[in-house]
Design a protein around this nucleic acid. Sequence first.
RNA 1: GCGUUCGUAGCUCAACUGGAUAGAGCGCCUGACUUCGGAUCAGGAGGUUGAGGGUUCAAAUCCUUCCGGGCGCACCA
Length: 574
Amino acid sequence: MNIFEYYLKKINKNILENKDILKLEDFESLNNVNLEIPPQQYNFDLSTNVALVLSKDNKINPMDLGTKIKRLFLKNIDHFEKIEIAGPGFLNIKLSKESMAFLINKILNIKDLYGSKKSNEKYNVEFVSANPTGPMHVGHCRGAVFGDVLSNLLSFNGNKVIKEYYINDYGNQIKNFVESVYLRIREIKYNEKFVLKENLYPGEYIKEIAEKIIKNNKNIKVDNFEDCFQELKELSLARSMELIKEDLKKLGIIHNNFFSESELIKKDLVNKSVKLLQKKNFVKEGILEPPKGEPNKNWKKVKRLIFKSTEFGDDTDRALQKNDGSWTYFANDLAYHSDKIDRKFDKLINILGADHTGYIKRISSAVLALSDRKIKLNCKVCQLVKLYKNGKPFKMSKRAGDFISAQDLLKEVNKDSIRFMMLNRSNDVELDFDFEKVKEKTKENPVYYVQYAYARINSIRRLLKIDPKDKILVNPETFSPNEFEEKIIRKIFEWPKIIESSINKLEPHKIPFYLYELSTLFHSYWSKGNEDNKYRIIENGRIKKVDTLAFINLIAIVIKNGMDILGVSLPEKM
RNA sequence: GCGUUCGUAGCUCAACUGGAUAGAGCGCCUGACUUCGGAUCAGGAGGUUGAGGGUUCAAAUCCUUCCGGGCGCACCA
């Protein structure tokens, strides 16, 4: 039940059917017509730019056209009770009380489906994909929550979504990681001092992994690194993935699929996808230009296979082979994405950290090339999280190297606050995350504000002994909302629009903002009752007006739907 | 230098993707609990949307030239 869609259809239909009366010929911009909520001071339910848009195409005065359309709508669309032309030619529309009641009852009937649309596409959302060389750090949390909520949002709309994690368990960093574990084991077993060399991992967690491995594998031999590498690699990777999964679980995130890079190598998928690209003529053999900017000592003049990504808008063509002829990370990732394409997803989405921005053109070019431009990889970037404690930049390095782990964060702040705060900002803006503020239980913390609104609603229900499952509808004949209720209805009507634009732009941050605004309307209505008896909801333990219960249920429905998407809990009491 | 992204109230951010008088929170000032949960509410002050130019009925939003911050610029992963 999206009322904007519902009435926009009626509007378009009406215009087309009466084009002669309106003296219109050109409808090129008809799909630029929109229906929105007018600014508050106008006190109308809907607003459309139809006269503005069509007057331009047909070169007529928007006010004249507006007047004609107004007359037409009032005659033909019985839900429209009053129309006013405002500003340069907007039509502001007021719905009749009966039609409002009709719409509200529809919402009360569909409940937890309110706002969802019956889409049916298959999505792959890849997110987190943190290197399995240690536990997650705080920066990963933002992308993790973002990806999870985006997935929830897409499933809410009826899509099939696979949440995927790409495990980079191949290459030099893994070797360094395993060697670090190896040396720590020797440190424990043989009392050899761990000497930190370049590329080795210093973190405390390496010791913990070493201890765990010794504990579970009493007979493990660590005499020679080469000999025990394979076994140690498996054990170490298993342990660090376990740590990562634990952190994710604490954040409320469960992936459906873990895809391993080394499996990719094992199955020879890289050769296959490079061959595929060659067949499509997107690969050349040549010598790369030396990198611009700072001179790079690693650059060598070597003939190698190169992907012609500039054909897809990349700045430069990209190497598929290293100096020694082995595949680059990119070549592997290309094979991974080729596999995604083979798995027949309609849409591919990757959530990346800000430090990977430069990689986007390359990999999305690859997807276009591999899919004959049929599939577009959509990459969303999450900007950095800056940590603060009481307004001061917060650093902590006792656990590991110099990063703050997700565990450290989870120890201080609960999951609900983390999730809400991480989303309470557009993803392409840096996020200031203050440990202390996020723990505060005041208006300054929007999580509690929304939860509190819901708790108050439940307190009303308890008082009146009402089961939330009870079906309550409004009576179209007697329906007469007061000014607070009117504002609430308009906000409730907006919900499907929020979902729609969050999905179109892949911007879930709109949801927390919306929920906050909705909660404000409720708190405001509630408090008015303390000031003026007329607005009190309950009198002598009984509800004053049955319709009010409908409003309360509407708010509860939408808050619940929204918080479910965000993955934030809603206590009945606080 | 190149790419990318951001620049909006003192601070942190929104703005339905081109719409009307640019909105919230914090902070500041003034008020509201004997009554449905004060983890709340009401009111006030606060703006040349970084700067200039362009596109049009309409620009914070699009184009362009500057200025300033972030991130990236290995054959690492």
